[in-house]
Design a protein around this nucleic acid. Sequence first.
RNA 1: CGCGGAGUGGAGCAGUGGCGGCUCGUUAGGCUCAUAACCUAAAGGUCGGGGGUUCGAAUCCCUCCUCCGCAACCA
Length: 686
Amino acid sequence: MKKFKRTLVTSALPYANGPLHIGHLAGAYIPADIFVRYLRLKKENVLFIGGSDEHGVPITLRAKKEGDTPKKIIDRYHYQMKETFKQMGISYDFYGRTSSETHHKLASDFFRQLYDNGKFIQKTNEQCYDEEAKMFLADRYIMGECPQCHCENAYGDQCEKCGTSLSPTELINPKSTISGCKPIMKKTTHWYLPLDEYEDWLKKWILEDHKEWRPNVYGQCKSWLDTGLHPRAVSRDLDWGIPLPIEGTEGKVLYVWFDAPIGYISNTKELCDTRPEKGDWETWWKDKDTRLVHFIGKDNIVFHCIVFPAMLKAHGNFILPDNVPGNEFLNLEDDKISTSRNWAVWVHEYLEDFPGKQDVLRYVLTANAPETKDNNFTWRDFQARNNNELVAIYGNFVNRALVLTQKYFNGTVPAKGELTEYDNSTLNDFADIKYKIERFLDDFKFREAQKEVLNLARIGNKYLADTEPWKLAKTDMDRVGTILNISLQIVANLAVAFEPFLPFSSEKLKKIILLKSYDWEMLGSTNLLPVGHKLNKPELLFDKIEDESIEFQIKKLLSNKESNSCKEENEIKTAPIRSNIDFADFEKLDIRIGTVLECQKVPKTDKLLQFTIDDGLNNRTILSGIAEYYSPEHLIGKQVCFIANLSSKKIRGIESRGMILSALNADNTLSLITVEKPVKPGSEVK
RNA sequence: CGCGGAGUGGAGCAGUGGCGGCUCGUUAGGCUCAUAACCUAAAGGUCGGGGGUUCGAAUCCCUCCUCCGCAACCA
């Protein structure tokens, strides 16, 4: 492995349009913080950079919806997130924001250099334009009637009612959400980064030179590279973001994914410019002896492994990431975390509900980190890990050693006598553990590393149980002194070893045992606390978490979910009645009743059922997207209502002749329309 | 045959060619310094199924099945 002189650690820039939840912490922030704290303890030269990602369409949409300016939105969430990180002990050297002046300038310059060196290609095509507001419209800014479900409020990229993905041109009666007028098509020019030109280089760099990357990261990259890369737009028509630094391009900004990763660089610069002792930002980003590590969640793999490196390569002067430890996702109580459904544990709420328990959350999210696959957070597991591991193993051992010392030696570290073979083998055990922890941390295996640290406490508990100093106290105080001395050394070692993982507890423990300062190299030492050293009064490191507070949290989650779905039902207005039609129009529709003869799921689809319907004449095949609500075997023999003269359409290679009618409920579930009493197949509906 | 990840004791997970392992839970015993915490022991697994390579397979190859995410699909 290459030796580096310094390490630059970044963690994904969280998007400033909502608060942080535990999935964010588990994915990128806690692992990054553990890694950084570990390197700092080793006295390595390390910089930890983060910041808020504050551009892009969703923020402007949110601002519009709330009647605020984008600036107000990003201010609110930037400061909230910054504070949450601080409270959780995420020890950034600098937490910046992409709306800063430094960033605007640096991102512009970055773009300009690529532009001047001909690294972009320029393309002109037609996009929706709002003549009244005089601006191009992103897909999300266009609403209209969905061509599928005829819901009135479909967006230009997707109808949220039926889930169909759309393009703005498909909408019926499209309207700009800004002015309400009908958008026209107008030509616009954008710049693209031709990723395909970097394909061969990326293949070598990742697939050959970085086989050590995590399988999930490597696999994702391989999949992209094998499929083939395409040019990606780097500009957008929008008034929120960094203006394109090209003459005559008013109303265009850098596309958010282009500007955001440059934020790592500009935040470094901003820190170094104000704090020269941190070094020169260009050394951090351009010197070959700097190791760059990005901590991210799996949704960001492509940007950090393919797009951003291609940008850096195109620029020419920057170093590339040495590793990109991407985590999978964390589920909550067996369900995907979702901001819109309010299915999340918000970190700022956790901090209120569990004051002083930052380390418990840090511990649980690390013990159960989604390093190799999606994992699940449950409040029961949270409680069990606190009570059975932090309290019972770590906290309890520390307390035992301190209470015994208080009792027999009045809180003073006793002298060590001659060591037995057992004493020595215990000491050897924890020297081994230091080596193991290092190996895991160097390999980004934080879950394993933390487990090994807890094993130190297990060794301590076992040592006390085996040597039984409380029995010896009646006969051999010298021996008791030796045992407690060793136990106290283990306690001090725990404070050091847990520091990257549980910084608050280590701080507390440090105060109890009056350990002045420490570094990683002291780990494994048996002389951290000198003989005669006076200790403070014992204090519990962790408290039990009772059932009530867990039940409270579970209830809170469930009621969030419930109130959310109630809200939805109330908020959804009954669709307005469409414009009148003539009787002649109605007569064109041929609606019939048919009997379901056969029904089966269309393979490899989630929603499609294939029906064979007896329509009184010939049997016909109809496809319907109701598989989520009905199982095929229950439908056989039922009589359903269908449109018989709708032009046929091939879906998934199957010819569908007609449309089975269902009612769309407010909660987006479908309910089949059937007859009140059986009728002859083929009966007309009038 | 869309892409990727995953299937290992009751639960959560390690283990990528050499006697199936860890944490929690369960049961029994010990201890009583400690937050009913700690220590020891036991029970519990045809390592998703089948086939193959090998002296030897959880691990490599083939094949099938299942789950998750993305994509597709919703007449």
